[in-house]
Design a protein around this nucleic acid. Structure first.
Lengths: 140, 140
DNA sequence: TCTTGTACCTCGAGTCGCTAGAGGATGTAG
DNA sequence: CTACATCCTCTAGCGACTCGAGGTACAAGA
């Protein structure tokens, strides 16, 4: 029997130790068995699950979305429409976010280019922030 | 005397009512004078300040960065190097964020395209999430 | 004038997804 | 046998709000 400690599970999955415990506490990860001295003993399947969670978090999925994804994964006979819908929704969000970040980048570039390193009175950074105050911005 | 209520200040600046009170509580917005019945009475300058804050928040600046920016704005004789540095740092962050979102977008597209609307067992979405678990991802 | 209804007030707690610290027990290498 | 890293639980904190309870103020209509 290879017992995997929480530290090793963390190393192998790329999820930090306190975060592993946190995921267990919110029910994303099943509570593992314990050693004599009450220390968690994980199994390889738990590492995969953690890696799955980590990857999904890196992709920006919310915990509740991941919970759904994991439920689906646990029963491979279910139709994958839900998984597809979650991924599609996320894709739309990401595309929107990219668009607004591009606009933002342009705006920041204007600011930085315009700043002549003089006094704040003539500073583009401050000016741009203040002047666009009234502009109707699209909300995320 | 035109007295601006918190509701109107919120409408004009695009900041929500509880958020206006929150900004006051953390000292981003000076505490306005009060009416007979203890209601906040804002002035036009407060609306500009709120709009400034809102715009900066939309651009992703953190509250502490905005606090610095506002301090600079309050004294236009200071050199604008700090404002410039804040904007530049933010620009670098934004560029990084765009790059990682583009990678993410590509990955989500792979998932969604591969999904044949069958059973979860063959679902690309789940598969990509699980398979890339071991991949060495660049951290943001 | 009275009443209705909306907007306002304060205060405390909740949100998300962790992260940090205290204070102690366990496991391992030399 | 002694260090010392790693583990345990528990509570509290982070940023930036957001919500709800319980109560007060104000403008408009009957």
């Amino acid at each position: 029997m290879k017992k995997i400690t929480i530290g090793e599970a963390a190393r192998r999955s790329g999820v930090k130790v306190p975060t592993v415990r946190y995921y267990e506490s919110i029910g994303l990860l099943p509570a593992p068995s314990r050693s004599e001295g009450n220390q968690r003993a994980f199994e390889p399947a738990d590492i995969s699950r953690l890696a799955f969670i980590r990857h999904a978090r890196e992709l920006g999925f919310e915990i509740e979305a991941i919970r759904t994804l994991l439920t689906l994964q646990d029963d491979p006979h279910q139709p994958c429409a839900s998984a597809d819908a979650i991924a599609k929704a996320r894709l739309v969000e990401v595309e929107q976010r990219i668009r607004s970040l591009m606009a933002l980048k342009a705006e920041l570039e204007t600011m930085v280019e315009g700043c002549g390193h003089g006094r704040v009175g003539q500073c583009r950074v401050i000016e741009v922030l203040a002047d666009h105050g009234q502009c109707t911005h699209s909300h995320h």
